[in-house]
């Protein structure tokens, strides 16, 4: 995809300007809207490849805008939210947002997230073999290797890992993972998730206490990071 278009829906002029400069400099085309209403109109008349949506809009609740957009808009939507708002973030993810970023964010992280959301949207699944540094997953053969050695994973561990890897760099809520891996009747059994994430980290991470692949998003869920993302480079 050459020069993907991104629609920014945010009422703060400065944030829009910063995003516009950052994204344009990185080869994206940018559309802007300052209200939810304008955002929906813009999305409908010039469908972008991705939408950045601020949850705190002046005219309408961002969650409503999100729901309205999701009735027909299939491409990625990333939420921009204020910090300490885990409930809203989880709700937005349940309402169909692909990812979220808390303000203030680092532009490096923003770009990485945008790229990976667009990549995910393009080649939906069907990548038979992926490599992340010293970790590789062969989805066809159901083999996970670490430093060229085959890892012995239980079937639940494998399911968990592949679910996260297939949604690389996208945050998955606890509830979503529990529902997908264990089933809808396990939504309350969050201790399963802790146990298996712990086990998986011991197997795939170089240092399970400083995970590089499975990142904890406090109060929201987990994010599988394949490349270098979110690292503070200062």
């Amino acid at each position: 995809m050459n020069n993907p278009t991104i629609l920014i829906i945010d009422d703060e002029n400065q944030i829009r300007k910063l995003l516009e400069i950052t994204l344009t400099a990185n080869g994206f085309k940018v559309n802007e809207a300052a209200t939810g209403k304008d955002g929906i109109i813009s999305a409908a008349t010039h469908p972008p490849d991705m939408i950045l949506l601020d949850l705190g809009l002046p005219d309408e609740d961002g969650q409503n805008i999100l729901k309205k957009l999701r009735e027909w808009y299939k491409a990625p939507i990333m939420i921009l939210s204020v910090k300490n708002n885990e409930d809203d973030i989880v709700k937005a993810l349940d309402n169909g947002a692909n990812d979220y970023l808390s303000k203030p964010f680092r532009t490096g992280e923003l770009l990485a997230r945008i790229r990976s959301a667009l990549r995910l949207a393009q080649n939906i699944e069907n990548i038979p073999l992926v490599e992340y540094g010293n970790l590789s997953i062969d989805f066809n053969a159901r083999i996970v290797k670490k430093n060229q050695e085959v890892l012995k994973l239980t079937s639940t561990e494998y399911q968990l890992l592949t679910l996260m890897a297939q949604n690389e760099s996208r945050v998955l809520t606890h509830q979503f993972i529990l529902k997908t891996v264990w089933g809808p009747s396990y939504l309350e059994q969050s201790q399963y998730l802790r146990v298996f994430v712990g086990q998986l980290r011991k197997k795939i991470e170089d240092n399970p206490n400083q995970p590089r692949f499975i990142i904890t998003e406090s109060g929201v869920g987990y994010r599988f990071v394949g490349g270098e993302i979110g690292k503070n480079n200062l």
Binding site: D87, H174, S190, R194, V197, G198
Partner: peptide, 10 residues
């Protein structure tokens, strides 16, 4: 507080 099982290591 939204209580949920926590891995204290984590």
């Amino acid at each position: 507080p939204k209580l949920d099982w926590c891995d204290i290591n984590e």
